[in-house]
Computed example of a mutant assay.
Amino acid sequence: MRKFIRFVKRLNLWQKIVSKLHKFANSYFYTPNLFENFLSIALIPLSLVYSLVIKLKKLSTKQISYEIPIINVGNLVLGGSGKTPLCIALYQEFSPKLKTFIILRGYKRASKGLFVVASDGEILQNVKISGDEAMVYAINGANVIVSEDRDLGIKKAINLGAKLVILDDAFSKFHINKFEILLRPPLKPASNFTIPSGVYRYPKSFYKYANFIPKSGDIISKSEILNHTKNMVLVTAIANPSRLNEHLKHCIGHEFFPDHHSFTKKELDDILKKYKATSLLVTEKDFVKIKEFDIPLSKLILKTSISQNFKSEISAYLRKFYATI
């Protein structure tokens, strides 16, 4: 029992360290102070080497094509840029015409290998197996596969009757011939260099490889709060939580955790007590991990749709495979 208590204490300490590192990264990449600016400049040589390696990998990779259209929704920076809601919007737009699967790695899931998370309206795995993002897709009615090996995932989807595949965050799979959608970051990075000097995980020049870069107005988003209560606390574990700042006016406080954080019931109960809150306001990505905790929750729903221009770009690509789309 004592060993277990010590382990829990070490775990809490580790979570605090991760949280501080997360805050430092946000500051370093987006709003650096004088020291962070100097650090970024000092690391430029490493970034140049990293960029060269990525460029050589891209140029030396031969592409393979599959028998069905494949769309990738990605970005060039670390962290979130709204890939999940856009994948849902694309699925909802085109799945009525073509049987569609969303395939993703399933980052931070407690499993390895390929799993069919949801198929034909049936959720087949729990959130620990699927990961939080895959479960968000599943509860929104999508066919979902998680697989570190995207090629295996695509082949499995085809075996299940897929006529269209949407890849979540697979820009790095240079060998797959796909329609590349690249999202720009919601916040402007302080540096245009790649990691470790800047936030770019691929050189900024790689935007030239995009088939489509959504502009203002191409992605239409509207948020809604379900079970709005008087004294809500915003609690979230997503990348770039500042994207939710507009909702702080509805809350009496906020607690931000590192992306994909695994919540415990105790830490959420402690937040409720700390603020004397009537509920915790959480995103869908957080909700799927804590819905069984029996605590008062308010859910932030982001409804996303795409412009006619966006639809036309995708439809033109799909007509290369299906003349009647």
Rank of each mutant, 00 (worst) to 15 (best):
I5K: 14
W14H: 08
Q15I: 13
K16I: 13
I17R: 07
A25D: 04
N26Q: 14
N26M: 10
S27R: 01
Y28L: 02
Y30M: 02
N33H: 05
E36W: 01
E36G: 02
F38Q: 13
L39C: 15
L46D: 09
L48W: 01
S51C: 02
L52H: 02
L52G: 04
L52T: 08
S60R: 12
T61K: 11
Q63C: 12
L76M: 10
L78A: 15
S81I: 00
T84K: 09
P85N: 03
P85Y: 05
S95V: 07
S95I: 08
L98T: 10
I102V: 09
L104R: 00
R105W: 04
R105V: 04
G106H: 02
K108E: 09
K108L: 07
S111L: 11
V116G: 05
L124H: 00
Q125P: 06
V127R: 03
K128S: 15
S130C: 06
V136R: 03
E148Y: 07
L152H: 00
I154K: 06
K156W: 00
G161V: 00
K163V: 08
L164F: 05
A170D: 04
K173H: 13
H175F: 14
H175I: 13
H175N: 15
F179D: 00
F179L: 05
E180N: 14
E180Q: 11
L182I: 15
L183R: 11
R184E: 14
P186H: 12
P186Y: 14
A190N: 10
T194C: 14
T194V: 06
I195C: 08
G198H: 04
P203I: 01
P203Y: 05
F206W: 04
Y209I: 13
A210P: 03
I213R: 05
S216F: 13
K222D: 10
E224D: 12
K230W: 12
T236L: 09
A237T: 07
A239T: 02
N240E: 06
P241G: 11
S242K: 11
R243C: 15
K249R: 15
H250W: 10
I252E: 10
H254T: 13
E255V: 09
F257P: 01
H260I: 05
H261S: 08
H261K: 07
F263H: 02
T264H: 11
E267K: 11
L268S: 08
L272C: 14
T278M: 12
L281F: 09
F287M: 03
V288Q: 06
K299G: 10
L300D: 03
L300N: 07
I301H: 13
S312P: 00
I314P: 04
I314A: 09
A316F: 15
K320P: 13
F321S: 08
Y322I: 11
Y322R: 07
T324K: 15
